[in-house]
């Protein structure tokens, strides 16, 4: 069985601005995942909605929630409802598209986010779904030429570098948590490893890991 809800605070929580945990808090979480991967302010944001997200995003505040996450806000930040205006004030172009077909990642609450920066040409695509109560899965990431297809449940750790470079990550992780799955991806730029972790890491634990691997992404 897939264990998506690993903490009692996934059930009692999050503290959030209403009205919908899957369409607002969850959308914010997908945006935050995109923010963690992109690691800079984009010039252009394109959001593709599917199924329930496509039908009800306006009513649920999904638009501002997703943008607030991309800007790095927490779901209970009082700026959440104003995120679209705040982003446009920074000169960010935002497009929302209601896709008529079924979700390509097979979930009714799907958002696919494309972030780009016209100044440096950086582009990433993140496919996420909101599975209820503010909890999300990330089922697709395109970055740096890698086409990453995680199983979905978080936490996920992405570490660029060769098999040899991964030794210290593996060593450090073994002291912290069980690795449910380790997958290798290849691109013209080298290798990248995806670790599906059994428990959520504390911020200080992620910082410690990042000391040796400055380009890692923790979702």
């Amino acid at each position: 069985m897939t264990v998506n809800y690993k903490s009692v605070f996934d059930i009692i929580g999050p503290i959030m601005i209403g009205p919908s945990s899957s369409h607002t808090a969850g959308a914010c979480a997908i945006g935050r995942a995109a923010n963690s991967i992109f690691q800079e302010t984009p010039t252009d944001i394109v959001v593709h909605y599917y199924e329930s997200f496509a039908q009800t995003h306006k009513g649920h505040g999904t638009d501002y929630a997703i943008i607030s996450g991309i800007l790095g806000f927490e779901p209970d930040d009082s700026r959440v409802p104003y995120a679209i205006g705040l982003a446009r004030d920074q000169g960010i172009n935002i497009t929302f598209i209601e896709e008529p077909e079924d979700s390509p990642i097979n979930h009714p609450n799907t958002a696919i986010i494309e972030l780009s920066n016209s100044k440096d040409g950086k582009e990433v695509t993140i496919a996420g779904c909101s599975i209820g109560g503010g909890t999300i899965e990330i089922r697709g990431i395109k970055m740096n030429g890698f086409d990453i297809k995680p199983k979905g449940p978080l936490p996920i750790l992405l570490v660029p570098g060769s098999e040899v470079d991964q030794q210290n990550v593996t060593d450090q992780l073994s002291a912290l948590t069980k690795v449910n799955e380790k997958k290798q991806y290849q691109s013209a730029k080298g290798d990248l490893f995806e670790y599906d972790l059994d428990r959520r890491l504390k911020p200080e634990e992620v910082k410690e890991l990042a000391k040796n691997n400055t380009n890692l992404v923790y979702l």
Partner: peptide, 18 residues
């Protein structure tokens, strides 16, 4: 009603059922 008015709530387990 606080949730529908976009006030702060604690999702238990969701906002709609808070």
């Amino acid at each position: 009603e606080v949730n529908s008015s976009m006030g702060v709530i604690c999702a238990t387990p969701t906002a709609g059922s808070s």
